[in-house]
């Protein structure tokens, strides 16, 4: 079975990045979920982000 069909057969375990109301929705449905208190990487410095991206790729 491929990854997507395996997902259709599994209980969802979710990570939420961004709007907290989507995390609330996951919790309301009793899904196992985590919310990421996200901050822009490199303090949002676009040039520094580009350097980090190259280092990580």
């Amino acid at each position: 079975m491929n990854e997507i069909n395996q997902l259709f057969d599994s209980k969802l375990i979710c990570v939420n990045l961004g709007l907290e109301r989507f995390f609330e929705a996951m919790c309301d449905q009793n899904l196992r979920a985590a919310h990421v208190d996200w901050k822009p990487p490199a303090g949002g410095d676009v040039r520094l982000m580009e350097i980090l991206r190259k280092l990580n790729s």
């Binding site: 997902l7 969802l12 375990i13 979710c14 990570v15 939420n16 990045l17 709007l19 989507f22 979920a33």
Partner: peptide, 10 residues
């Protein structure tokens, strides 16, 4: 979480 299988990104 251990082994999450889904991410919602906004």
């Amino acid at each position: 979480l251990g082994n999450p299988n889904f991410a919602v990104i906004s």
